[in-house]
């Protein structure tokens, strides 16, 4: 039970980072914070952190960003499914391998978002879609280290 509080607090911080105001030229480089948070907690607490929670956080993000409801929910649930299947293997990878996998997850996430946008709004492909993948991969080691400290701190008590 206590586990869940710090999981959700850190995911809340991730959600805030997703919407925090940034200069308009940096907007395209914004990493997928929430995706990193979800993948991290799924790796250590797969029984608390499942597809349903990812779905709910996706829905909150849809409302916050003014997207069509269900867009991020769909993308997060699909990514969460893939991450849950591989969470044991993922845990044993080195941090660099992990960051590669997280890059793949982000690419998958963005691809689902693009497909649903394309289907609903006729969005066409743009090379800028690749930036979040690079920034997310770059930030994963730091994010991992930070969240791991939160986790250790919690386990000690």
């Amino acid at each position: 039970m206590i586990n869940r509080i710090h999981i959700h607090l850190s995911l809340l911080v991730c959600t805030i980072l997703e919407i925090i105001p940034m200069p308009i030229s940096f907007g395209t480089y914004r990493p997928d914070w929430l995706l990193m948070g979800l993948v991290f907690w799924n790796m250590f607490h797969p029984q608390n952190m499942n597809i349903g929670i990812a779905f709910l956080y996706g829905l909150v993000l849809d409302v916050l960003l003014g997207y069509t409801l269900g867009m991020h929910a769909l993308a997060f649930s699909l990514v969460m499914y893939v991450a849950s299947i591989h969470h044991l293997r993922f845990k044993n990878y080195s941090i660099w391998q992990q960051s590669g996998i997280v890059g793949l997850y982000t690419a998958f996430h963005n691809m689902v978002l693009f497909w649903s946008q394309h289907w609903l709004n006729d969005a066409f492909f743009h090379l800028n879609y690749f930036w979040p993948i690079a920034t997310t991969m770059f930030l994963w080691p730091w994010c991992f280290w930070l969240l791991n400290r939160v986790r250790r701190e919690r386990l000690r008590h």
């Binding site: 925090i20 105001p21 907007g27 395209t28 960003l65 003014g66 997207y67 978002l113």
Partner: peptide, 9 residues
């Protein structure tokens, strides 16, 4: 208040 600038929106 805030900017949401991605290629999607």
């Amino acid at each position: 208040l805030a900017v949401d600038n991605s290629p999607y929106s």
